[in-house]
Nucleic acid binder design. Structure first.
Lengths: 343, 343
DNA sequence: TTGAAAGCGCTACCAC
DNA sequence: GTGGTAGCGCTTTCAA
């Protein structure tokens, strides 16, 4: 039989109530008691029972505040679905989600959303945002009252969050290089790279991973151009078309940003000549269509569903178990998807 | 506030005990009561609280019997790890695992293991076995007393289990074909396929998916030979070597069975000539080494960890929630892994 | 600062 | 066939 709170209480010669308070950092417990109880609990191998906890805490649920740049961004729909799956699994254990969704990455928007979440009285936070000064400052302040702050999809290393769940962007680019190397083993590797915003760290990390990857695999690649589409479909299409037209020797098109994929696809379609190998990034509904049409050859994906799912679950576990476990980051492997996945 | 058992009891004018029994298929309840309570519960949107259930049922835990052909089979180590992760997550909610591990696929071994599990008094089963007559017969009998029988990794369609968690072997082969098509776009596709046992359905399904996939992608492929290594490393190596030696025109080696990978790798190493594209299946420790050495170019994997994890979780949810949800099969997508995944 | 007791949702046991 | 009651592990009042 597992050891319960009562067992610890008996062993300590204290009441269950006191032990509970000691273990949950309640202010009104003598420090000596806290130390004694903590040591005893650890030595007895005590681990709180989530069922009991959830049941008794039914009036004070775990409410996690979520900030996502998901408005009009289909990529984050999958993150949201994963979060809602976690919610379904844990709602009868007292989990609540407060989702604040924002369009794009504008600092002021994110700042306001964050303030709304704090005002809503969340006791944990799961964020996808950018490391802008004002945001970091607000979060640093928040950290004094709430230690349960996690990052999903995009990390904030400067903040040192409780944990980060997401993909290694560098590795994602490296994998793209590996694939390009395989597919063009005996052919020249003349590459056009398309991204969204150079100011977003993740995007540039992919580019770095890609170029270093090609070097690792011993390829003399020629980077024709690095196109910045500014998350604008028309602009992306135009620039990509120009590059493709000016460089018929291009053998590989690597689109390192999910939001730039459809623009690049339109460019390829418009130029109905011989097509370069097309390696995309991420997977949104339109990606699937371009796959079926044979425009995209492969896409380097990152399972946004699982990211949302794991982030919420880990956070819930941290809050309920007094973060004994579940700390470290969770870096999910990038995965390759081909047309066959959509048949 | 969510609706509780007590609410339903009040609405029905019955005691909570009776409602509980009615909802849990206890024998000693009048059928009219069962119908009435069930209808009322449904109309009120009642959904049992797992915390309460787990707490009260602490002496009668959910014990899931697991049968895996995992002895000396590193592939199933990952399945096991996933199952143990699920166990850790749910053990304080009353989950217990009884694992019976077997070496290989011999009918008598599996039969005995199954009998041991039944004798152990498990109230749910998670099985990875083959559709042999005696096994199916025993399971059909078991079905009368226990409806919670699920299959993991290998399905038993004849049994109609509660659900199946695993990969679509056909799709796995199809994906391999997609990759071969991409990597050898402008080159002849002369293929040698290596498998373990022709008698294992999953293995042949991969071969079928591969050949039909090539046809789908419009490739005139030439199948040089289909080698059956009989899960024997030496034999696999020998036969593969002979085939490679006799056919220098071979441009692609597809090993459609995890257990045949290392034998095929040794064959390629022994013949230090120009290497064909090497597409492997699954991922075990030795696979990683051959990747690093540059023998294997790609592997079509199936995330055994997640399979074990999901299978146990689904089964637990079915048992505790009276299988309201969580029924349907869970078919995980095959994934492509390259060298970059291991750096 | 600590103890005692009630109650979260559910099931099992014992009466009836 | 059904009702009452106790108790699972934990937190949280209210008293002391």
């Amino acid at each position: 039989m597992t050891v319960t709170l009562k067992d610890v209480a008996v062993a300590c010669g204290l009441s269950p109530g006191t032990v509970s308070r000691a273990l949950n950092h309640h202010p009104s417990v003598h420090q000596d008691t806290v130390d004694y109880v903590t040591a005893m609990a650890r030595s007895m191998g005590y681990y709180p029972n989530r069922a009991g906890k959830a049941l008794s805490a039914r009036k004070k649920p775990v409410s996690i505040g979520v900030l996502l740049p998901s408005v009009n961004g289909p990529f984050f729909d999958d993150v949201k679905s994963g979060m809602h799956k976690a919610l379904r699994e844990y709602e009868d254990l007292g989990l609540t989600l407060v989702c604040d969704e924002v369009e794009g990455w504008k600092e002021t928007d994110h700042l306001q959303a964050l303030k709304r979440l704090i005002k809503a009285g969340c006791n944990a936070f799961c964020l996808c945002t950018q490391p802008r000064p004002a945001i970091l400052a607000l979060l640093e302040e928040l950290k004094h009252t709430c230690t349960y702050i996690a990052c999903v999809n995009h990390n904030l290393p400067e903040l040192k969050p409780l944990f980060f769940v997401g993909v290694d962007f560098y590795k994602s680019g490296f994998l793209a290089a590996n694939l390009a190397h395989l597919c063009l083993r005996d052919k020249p590797l003349n590459v056009i790279i398309v991204i969204g915003l150079k100011s977003l760290k993740g995007h540039m990390e992919r580019v770095r991973g890609f170029t270093e990857g090609l070097r690792y695999f011993g390829r003399q690649a020629h980077l024709i151009s690095l196109i910045e589409g500014e998350d604008n479909e028309i602009l992306t299409q135009t620039l990509t078309m120009e590059a493709l037209k000016a460089h018929p020797e291009a053998s590989c098109l690597y689109v390192a940003t999910g939001s730039a994929v459809s623009g690049a696809c339109r460019a390829v379609i418009a130029l109905s000549g011989r097509r370069p190998y097309f390696i995309a990034t991420d997977e949104i509904p339109s990606t699937r269509d371009y796959f079926k049409e044979g425009i995209i050859d492969a896409s380097i994906c990152q399972d946004p569903f699982l990211q949302g799912y794991y982030a919420i679950k880990k956070l819930y576990n941290c809050v309920t178990s007094g973060d004994l476990v579940e700390k470290g980051d969770l870096i999910v492997d990038p995965s390759i998807r081909l047309k066959a996945h959509y048949l």
